[in-house]
């Protein structure tokens, strides 16, 4: 059985092919690649996809994963309800 699509980012439905295409277009730093493909920007905030995106970018550029780096991590770690942030009781 062949796999038609390899989904890397499940929040934003981004395939490996789309990530490789973005790298070929010149989006070769991890911050730009994140933004151009939409990976790492969904509700998981990269917890599912970021390590794969780094691996794909490192492989395509022939670099080490350390050289590729990680995207700047932004708070909060998990999505939080605005009601909770406002100090309201959780229903």
């Amino acid at each position: 059985m062949t796999v038609a699509k390899k989904i890397v980012c499940r929040c934003e439905d981004v395939t490996e092919e789309e990530i490789i295409d973005a790298i070929k277009q010149g989006y070769t730093d991890i911050e730009s690649l994140k933004r151009y493909t939409g990976t790492v920007t969904g509700p998981c905030q990269g917890k599912t996809c970021l390590s794969h995106v780094i691996a794909i970018l490192a492989r395509e550029l022939g670099k080490g994963k350390d050289e590729v780096g990680v995207t700047r991590q932004r708070p909060p770690v998990k999505p939080i309800l605005l009601g909770v942030l406002a100090g309201e009781a959780i229903e």
Binding site: T41, G42, P43, Q45, R74, P75, P76, P79, I80, L81, L82, G83, V84, L85, A86, G87, E88
Partner: peptide, 24 residues
């Protein structure tokens, strides 16, 4: 985020049910 949450809920209360993903 707490300041944003209070302001947004005062203007549009149903936002209390929505979650913030990230801030910058």
């Amino acid at each position: 985020l707490p300041k944003l949450a209070r302001a947004i809920i005062e203007v549009m209360p149903q936002f209390r049910h929505l979650a913030v993903m990230r801030q910058w």
